[in-house]
Amino acid sequence: MKSKSTGVRFWIGAILFLAAMLAATQVIRNEYPFFAGYIILQFVVLAVAWSILGGYAGYVNFGTSAFFGMGVYTAVFLVKATGAPLAVQIAAAAGVGALLGFAVGLLTLRMQGIFFSIATIALTIIIETTVTNWRFVGGAAGIQIQRPPVTPPFDTYVQMLFFVQALLVVLAVAIARYIQRSWIGRGLQAIKDDELAAECTGVPTLRLKLLACVISGALMCAAGAPAAMYFQYADPSSAFNLNYSVSALAMSLIGGTAHWAGPVLGAILLGVTQQFLAVTISSEVNVLILGIMLVLFVVAAPEGLIGLIRKIGNWRAGRAT
């Protein structure tokens, strides 16, 4: 009974969120909030997608930038080759991401701990180098992209991208939430606790990890696709920047990985702080904050914000009785 009512509440919340975002694009005339908001929403998708493999199964993926960059370049390729519309770019990116996730999973998921992490960094650099040497999509110098005319009801292209990214947020959270509550999530949790024991009790560990890698990869790629249109420019070293990997990981760990709300909270907290700091101080300090918050949370609050909130809740409950 309880799970059904939370399900209804979740979807009402999601619809309210989308309605609010749509209303904002109609009411607010200033472009800037959408510029900043887009980046924050993008990080929410990346963090939620990261935590499907990294949080639930405990496989620390440093390849977020590989998937993100592939998303960007899938969009670039489609725009350049066929002039496909945005929806097609995102769908194609999700497909590419799923395939890449499958390939990466097959190659690396038998490794454990740091070897998996290092292997995912390795793949990122190899893919980046390949794209750098691919002339058609601009090579190392990058490529300019022309935005097509905007579709009503949106006034500007950035507002439309903002709303599209909001849709992706809802999609990513719904998928993460479903996984967390289904047998897939329980299986991944078992892998995180003790992979050998899980394997022995009949959990199909490799298949579950592959599934998680495919879903997480598809979402990360989809999140990257609109970035080509957002920046109107793409180049390998920024599309595949390691900062995306560390940000997604930091946001998930800061928020807490036990619940889908963790990465959302972490991404909003860190994303808003970064947007604020980038405007007021500089983008270097931005990265510094990322590093310091990551170290602080990993050392002092290993369960993340979600863990802290639960602890405070327990403490209150303990005092009340």
Binding site: G113, V246, A250, V287, G291
Partner: peptide, 22 residues
């Protein structure tokens, strides 16, 4: 320890990078 350890050292690496830049 492995998961958090890697995250920890990445955080340290970022801090060192930025301190050098600053």
């Amino acid at each position: 320890a492995a998961v958090r350890g890697i995250a920890f050292f990445f955080g340290v690496a970022f801090i060192v990078e930025v301190l050098i830049v600053l």
